[in-house]
Write a protein that binds this DNA or RNA. Structure first.
Lengths: 159, 159
DNA sequence: TCTTTATTTAGAATGATTATAATTTAATAA
DNA sequence: TTATTAAATTATAATCATTCTAAATAAAGA
């Protein structure tokens, strides 16, 4: 496990290597992302969290930074169909993709930390001549706890 | 294979059964969807096509109709992360879900008409207590033809 | 046909995201 | 270190997709 400071340093280096500048606003934004690794935050969420420590920052800057980080493959931009894009830091090993379970009762999004699709990606290549560079797998349904009306655990973070 | 007229009739019946009214605007919209079964049209696309034959129709009506049809599970609403929702008629057999290949060169979306996920859905239930009612699987990558710079076939419908 | 209620229309409103123009700042060279 | 230059930021306006509103219209049932 790499420390936050080390990750930050690495991200900054990647920025500079591609000819982008390292700014305090970008650093503040990256810090928030590092501290909320798998929270699926919207741009607005990130903005509010960054603003706590850097009140002068503008929303557009956060948008631009998230866009840049996505371009650098440091951040993953997702879309769960609720009208807002969500952002998460990409884990160190880019290969290791994860999947999502989206609860239709409480709206909570939970992760499956495995990659279950390597075989299927080979199949796509074989059968369709399609070379997969990335994928996305979401399951929609309900957690056992939610089905019983007792979805406290998943609901409290949702709202 | 059921004829367009028969499918239309069935859809109207389902509407009425749920207490909604059958209107000419809704019929015109459904007709367009029936004639573009797997085109992944945006609301705007549908609107323009409906307008050709029913020029008085309003965009909001198309949106409302698509929303209603989605609610009735007659239409599938999808989101490929490009900022617009896309709509397709659900095939007769609702079980038979399909997957998508999204080309990062030409933007074309193509379908895999199989359901490759039944096993994985059981695994989600076993390992996470999550009951899957639906899923979504997109592969992002490139078609062999596109990689060679010759992606005419896929590009011409993309724009 | 009459009545009731849903639906449509046109246009305004909203919410997320992106563009603009003026100002500031980071990186680099002198 | 300072000066230079291009990129980044700010605040705000603009845009795009989508939803809402109020008045007018049309469908279904009595």
């Amino acid at each position: 496990m790499i420390s936050v400071e080390e990750q930050l340093k690495s991200m900054k280096q990647q920025m500079i290597a591609k000819g982008y500048k390292s700014t305090v606003q970008r650093e503040a934004t990256m810090r928030v992302l590092l501290e909320h690794e798998r929270d699926h935050m919207s741009a607005e969420d990130v903005y509010m969290r960054v603003k706590e420590r850097f009140p002068e920052i503008g929303l557009a800057t956060v948008y631009r930074t998230l866009e840049l980080l996505t371009e650098l493959h440091l951040v993953e931009k997702m879309n769960f169909g609720d009208g807002v894009a969500r952002f998460d830091l990409r884990s160190e090993d880019h290969e290791h993709m994860h999947h999502h379970m989206i609860c239709s009762v409480c709206g909570e999004v939970e992760e499956i930390q495995d990659d279950w699709l390597t075989e299927l990606e080979q199949r796509v290549k074989r059968e369709y001549g399609f070379n997969v560079s990335d994928h996305r797998l979401d399951f929609i349904g309900t957690f056992a706890s939610c089905k019983h009306g007792d979805c406290r655990r998943h609901c409290e973070t949702a709202s």
